[in-house]
């Protein structure tokens, strides 16, 4: 990736992270950790890979995303605001009565949201239906889906795993946000996913694995997934819950965490300093 493009992606990701902290910080509680762990993949998708913008929001041939771990909505909202789907100020209405930005993604409320999610385990199946419909109609687009590692405890994920390969959905590219944490403890202790790549390979998926905070590596992995012609692809992203904020990074408590005014200011200060250093 040329340096200029990478720089642009880095700047976009920093802004997304800043906006997540400010939006959740404003209301004082939210799904902080799991939003921060997918900042890089969302940035790469919307600023490098996906054919999706406010201009083609109604075009059936656009690329679509199902954020199956719907509680990470605030991360996606920060990306969509930066893409121009709605004004940045809207981010600060998060979870307030009457808002268009609820905790969990809602296709009927938020411009740019392709599917309603929030009950874990359903999004990958929905993405299969979308991929089937678009393939049937001869569209050349891709359907992307992001599932969580804790979400992978749901049996329906594995029903979907079987179905997507049965139907040979090479137009489906999924990601697992493998931040190694459930809500109640480490994934390895709650319900061990063990060799997650081997599981997806056993279901006959094309499996890739990469550092989920390395923009360039994620971009390369998606490029590679696009070359697959017979099977769906699962890109396992090694991530850190709460990435980029010292109040949350690597902390089990970050799933749905209360954030005081002081913590918010501290986190925003850290992110501003990092932005200053890099710009």
């Amino acid at each position: 990736m040329e340096a200029e493009r990478l720089k642009r992606l880095e700047a976009a990701a920093r802004q997304v992270r800043y906006d997540i902290v400010e939006a959740i910080g404003n209301i004082g509680i939210g799904h902080f950790g799991g939003a921060l762990s997918i900042v890089e993949v969302l940035t790469v998708l919307y600023f490098s890979q996906m054919n999706a913008s406010p201009a083609n929001a109604k075009d059936p041939g656009r690329d679509k995303l199902v954020l199956s771990k719907g509680h990470a909505g605030p991360a996606l909202y920060a990306v969509l605001a930066q893409k121009g789907y709605f004004p940045r100020e809207t981010l600060f209405t998060l979870n307030q009565g009457g808002t268009s930005l609820p905790s969990h993604c809602d296709r009927n409320l938020t411009p740019g949201i392709d599917m309603t999610t929030g009950s874990l385990g359903q999004g990958l199946s929905v993405a299969i239906g979308m991929a089937l419909a678009d393939r049937m109609d001869g569209r050349k687009n891709r359907i992307f889906a992001i599932i969580g590692d804790g979400e992978s405890d749901e049996g329906q994920v594995w029903e979907a795993a079987m179905a997507a390969s049965q139907y040979g959905l090479s137009n489906l590219i999924a990601f697992t946000d493998y931040n190694k944490m459930n809500i109640d403890g480490l994934t390895s202790e709650i319900m061990n996913l063990d060799d997650l790549g081997a599981k997806w390979r056993a279901f006959n998926w094309n499996v890739l694995r990469t550092d989920g905070h390395d923009l360039e590596a994620i971009d390369r992995a998606i490029d590679a997934a696009r070359l697959e012609s017979d099977r769906p692809t699962m890109i396992i992203l090694d991530t850190i819950k709460g990435k980029g904020c010292s109040i949350a990074e690597g902390k089990l408590s970050s799933h749905n965490m209360a954030i005081s005014k002081e913590q918010k200011e501290k986190a925003l200060g850290e992110l501003s300093a990092a932005m200053g250093e890099l710009s």
Partner: peptide
């Protein structure tokens, strides 16, 4: 969908939102 009703119903939702 095979013997997987949950997956079937969610897949149907995906088909529906794509027209």
């Amino acid at each position: 969908a095979g013997v997987a009703e949950a997956n079937m119903v969610s897949m149907a939702a995906g088909l529906a939102v794509c027209g």
